[in-house]
Design a protein around this nucleic acid. Structure first.
Lengths: 138, 138
DNA sequence: CCGATATCAGTGTTACTGACATTG
DNA sequence: CCAATGTCAGTACCACTGATATCG
């Protein structure tokens, strides 16, 4: 049953990833938001949520954490005062690189001896499934 | 980042699967335990936990639910009185088939237009990852 | 005494829901 | 008036931890 395999694999992945991130005091949400800011530049919270598939409510808490660590800055958008513009700081940039290197190690451990072509096909399929549901799933 | 894709896919999968199961009043744990009983016959709770990768504590609650619905029976093993032997009832057998058909539909929706060979390769890789960590992860 | 089993109580994370005030 | 945004409180499920009692 593929769905069971997917969730089992995800459980395993989450255990490894969470443990690795916990050692540097981060969470998956922290990484996702930092990476999105690095890729797309200053972004509103609602937009961050859409890009990372994270709920608006959870973005609030995540950004609170990141502001506290001086990894991002939150300021009101003067053009649309409903929105907060979140920007990555230099410290945040370094933080992201650190977290990414930790995740690289974890990834290698997770995928172990899977040969590269199979690994790439696997990633392609994951991406295809997600893309296929991109419209229906926020 | 593969691990991010895996967890995103799992989130999507869980949303679809949980929604489908909720409509028939079931959970993923219910399905896993019923399926394990169908495959392996009467089993102790600890063994169920190992087979399904579910914690012993959670097996207790799951079996409680299933006993309440008359889907399984729990009785003490006369050979080893520490153990409860859990057996699938006829009602439970029907329940399992019903849930499985619901999941089949969900699965088809999830995997959408992925061609069969790619689908099989995907499942193979999932299995390989899980097997590779079978020793380290209970 | 040690190990395995079942149970219970409780924790933490993730994902989500509903409500509200503010702004466009 | 309606829609979007940010915030807060609370819920549900999943995974896990620790303690306890029983039994082999």
């Amino acid at each position: 049953m593929p769905s069971w395999l997917i969730t089992q694999t995800a459980t395993l992945t989450n255990r490894l990833v969470s443990a690795a991130l916990a050692e540097v005091g981060a969470t998956r949400y922290h990484y996702a938001v930092l990476a999105a800011l690095d890729e797309f530049g200053p972004t509103s919270q609602a937009e961050l949520g859409r890009r990372c598939h994270i709920d608006r409510s959870d973005i609030v808490a995540t950004v609170n954490d990141l502001v506290e660590g001086r990894y991002v800055e939150r300021r009101q958008d003067s053009a649309d005062r409903r929105q907060n513009l979140i920007t990555l700081t230099n410290t945040g940039q370094q933080r992201l690189e650190h977290i990414a290197s930790v995740l690289d190690t974890t990834q290698a451990h997770l995928l172990g001896d899977i040969p590269k072509p199979e690994r790439e096909a696997f990633v392609t399929t994951l991406r295809r499934i997600l893309d296929h549901h991109a419209g229906t799933a926020q």
